[in-house]
């Protein structure tokens, strides 16, 4: 950024903005809108040639020609922002897309990549180059097919934010290579067919995982939060499905909605409780409307010191959870009265 601004002219302030600043503004816009600024005045005629962004919807057979023409007219190779939207509908993948896209990511030194793609052929991957870039800081990926990448494919040393929106049926462990391949990752956010929402935040001091699952048919909701210090990183255990290794962490589980026979939520709940049996802190809230289960096999919580129970009524099958914690020191128990939405009925520890 250069600055030679002297004095305080009250009018035409934008003329004091350098081309760099103007290009930075335009880099947030779709490329066609950046091109449209050439009509503003003579000064603006060629500004778009230097905008460090490539931002196109590519949902027509002619789209690629537009992108090619755009690339050929530009006077800079720098592309900080790259957004390509191949649309909601499957569209035949052009054979040379991998090639030019790799070139753009490499030569343009792309930092922010936003890519959405829907393809019929589930065996194909998005261009590999986007998983091995040293420059990408933000990666936003929307794909409709199963996204399982071998571990050697993902190497994103600069990535801090990773959003994956996956309509396909990728299991969570399918994403673990993204996690291992991105050591600088601060926010990892996943949406899939199975998990409504998964957010992992890794700050300098703490780590927080937020998982939400919803089933549309029974309107049941399952929410899991795990928090720990940075040096007790539990995320690898999460991806390897070995949550039984997690001890020094706070776990918050909430279930709500109408839960009918053999609901997936209930199954998941019992599974997660079993997996998380070694934690020291557990907050468990059960607000489901229906509960026609016999007492499920509750695991023994060997290390549990603190337990918070929020139950809809005392008939809840999780009422006996406290009896499964031999080391329990701090117990808080609340029964929710269904006439109230809050925690009005507070029972003392027993």
């Amino acid at each position: 950024m250069t600055n030679e601004r002297i004095g305080y002219a009250e009018e035409d302030r934008i003329s004091e903005l350098t081309d760099d600043v103007v290009c930075h503004i335009l880099s947030f816009l779709p490329s066609e809108e950046a091109i449209a600024t050439s009509l503003l005045s003579t000064r603006w005629r060629f500004v778009w040639h230097m905008v460090p962004a490539l931002d196109f919807d590519c949902m027509k057979p002619t789209s690629q020609e537009r992108v090619n023409k755009f690339l050929s007219l530009r006077t800079t190779q720098r592309i900080t922002r790259l957004r390509l939207n191949y649309g909601k509908y499957s569209y035949p993948w052009l054979p040379d897309t991998d090639k030019w896209l790799s070139a753009v990511i490499k030569k343009g030194k792309v930092e922010h990549l936003n890519f959405s793609l829907c393809r019929a052929d589930a065996n194909d991957l998005p261009p590999w180059s986007m998983f091995t870039s040293t420059t990408i800081v933000t990666l936003n990926l929307k794909v409709s097919f199963a996204l399982v990448l071998p571990s050697f494919v993902v190497h994103l040393p600069s990535v801090k934010t990773l959003h994956i929106h996956n309509h396909g049926c990728t299991s969570l462990s399918g994403f673990k290579n993204f996690f291992y391949g991105s050591p600088a990752l601060e926010l990892f956010s996943i949406k899939t067919a199975h998990v409504t929402e998964l957010n992992i935040v890794r700050k300098t001091r703490h780590i927080r995982l937020f998982e939400r699952r919803e089933t549309r048919i029974s309107h049941a909701m399952f929410k899991l939060v795990i928090e720990s210090d940075r040096h007790n990183d539990f995320i690898p255990h999460y991806f390897e499905d070995h949550l039984e290794n997690v001890v020094k962490a706070k776990v918050y589980i909430t279930v709500a909605g109408c839960d009918f026979l053999c609901s997936r939520v209930m199954t998941r709940l019992l599974y997660d409780l079993k997996q998380l049996r070694n934690v020291e802190f557990l907050s468990f809230a059960d607000f489901r409307l229906l509960d026609i289960y016999a007492t499920p096999p509750l695991p023994k919580f060997q290390n549990l010191v603190q337990l918070r129970l929020y139950l809809k009524d005392s008939h809840s099958v999780f009422f006996k959870l406290s009896a499964r914690c031999p080391k329990l020191k701090d117990f808080e128990f609340v029964i929710m009265d269904d006439r109230y939405s809050g925690f009005e009925l507070l029972l003392p520890c027993y």
Partner: peptide
């Protein structure tokens, strides 16, 4: 941005034409 349009109507029409490939909605 406080920009004065210094294009002639002919120029403006010509540049609209020139950038038609991009599918720009002018």
């Amino acid at each position: 941005f406080g920009i004065d349009n210094d294009y002639t109507p002919e120029e403006e029409a010509a540049y609209r034409e020139e950038n038609a490939w991009a599918g720009v909605k002018f």
